[in-house]
């Protein structure tokens, strides 16, 4: 999977959930990835270096693994 696109998607989710506060946004981003991402998408973002992820997205991906 195109990791740039997946990174963009994760960041976009995080940016839109951010107004709900960091802790809540992280939890919601994590749940969103669990609920809507196909296993190969989750595997790809977990296998990436995660450097392009915004802090909320990164925290969520860290907890996904």
């Amino acid at each position: 999977m195109d990791i740039e696109r997946l990174t963009y998607m994760a960041n976009q989710i995080a940016r839109n959930l951010a107004p709900q506060g960091e802790a809540q946004a992280t939890e919601l981003t994590l749940q969103h990835l669990k609920d809507f991402w196909d296993p190969r998408m989750k595997a790809a973002i977990l296998a990436s270096d995660r450097s392009g992820l915004l802090p909320i997205a990164r925290a969520a991906v860290d907890r996904l693994g």
């Binding site: 999977m1 195109d2 696109r5 609920d35 809507f36 991402w37 196909d38 190969r40 998408m41």
Partner: peptide, 11 residues
């Protein structure tokens, strides 16, 4: 969950 249409095309 499975792939959405745009993700199918990516995959």
């Amino acid at each position: 969950p499975g792939l959405r249409i745009p993700n199918m095309l990516d995959a």
